[in-house]
Simulated assay, not measured.
Amino acid sequence: MKKKTYEELIKESPVTYEMYAEMVDDGNRYEISDGVLELMSPAPTPTHQSFVYELQYKLNASCRNEYIIYSAPIDVILSDTEVRQPDLIMIHRSRMDIIEKRGINGAPDLVVEISSKHSRRRDKVQKRIAYAKYGVPEYWIIDLTNFTLEQHVLEGERYELAEVYAEDETIRSQIVACASFSMNELVWSLPVHPDLLD
């Protein structure tokens, strides 16, 4: 069977994980949102990439005995027509059966998206709805424009904004109790401070 390109697949509906997995690799990153293939925003900035690394390092230091932590790119297959690539995910070791060769087959315990001006609407609206629909217990949205962390906790079928953390406030989670850090700790750990970049 001939592999299809992005241009060919966006004309089909719904797009499934199998179609997505068989498409031509053109070097871009894609997600499937409710059966629609979406091209992800431009490549992450150096600050974004450094922040993901520092956050993963911090979480590994305190949580690796309880959780497995992955950073993008990795497919999180929430359903056959909902495939996401979060910036960072955590899966409790008691649920390792959702880790498969092709990716993560089911809802992680925690999903983290680091928002940019290109992804803000997708992260705060579309992904928040999708992660709640498929039962992700906790969702963090980190905004690098003001270095805040929004903590969304699943209540029934919807997320409630539990807290917004900034500066030296210690981030705490009932779902991921081992997590304990502040936004300033992460910012001060960056190899190049964002204010020094053009």
Rank of each mutant, 00 (worst) to 15 (best):
D34E: 13
D34R: 13
G35V: 10
G35E: 07
G35I: 09
V36K: 15
L39D: 14
S41P: 14
P42R: 08
A43W: 11
A43N: 14
P44K: 10
P46L: 14
P46H: 13
H48A: 07
H48S: 08
H48C: 09
Q49I: 13
Q49N: 15
V52C: 14
Y53F: 15
E54H: 11
E54L: 13
L55T: 06
Q56V: 10
Y57M: 13
K58D: 03
L59K: 00
L59F: 08
N60M: 11
A61S: 15
A61P: 10
C63S: 02
C63R: 01
N65M: 05
I68D: 14
I69K: 11
Y70R: 07
S71T: 14
S71Q: 08
S71N: 13
P73E: 04
D75F: 05
V76P: 00
V76Y: 00
V76E: 00
I77G: 03
I77M: 04
I77S: 01
I77F: 02
I77R: 07
S79N: 03
S79W: 01
S79C: 05
D80E: 15
V83G: 01
V83I: 12
P86K: 09
P86W: 01
D87N: 10
L88T: 03
I89D: 04
M90K: 02
I91T: 03
R93N: 13
R93D: 06
S94H: 12
S94A: 13
M96W: 12
D97G: 11
I98S: 01
R102D: 07
N105P: 00
G106R: 02
A107Q: 00
P108T: 06
V112T: 00
I114F: 02
S115Y: 00
H118G: 08
H118T: 10
R120L: 10
R121H: 11
R122T: 14
R122L: 11
D123Y: 05
K124R: 15
R128M: 11
I129S: 03
I129L: 12
I129W: 04
A130N: 06
A130M: 07
Y131C: 05
A132W: 01
A132N: 00
A132C: 05
Y134S: 00
Y134L: 00
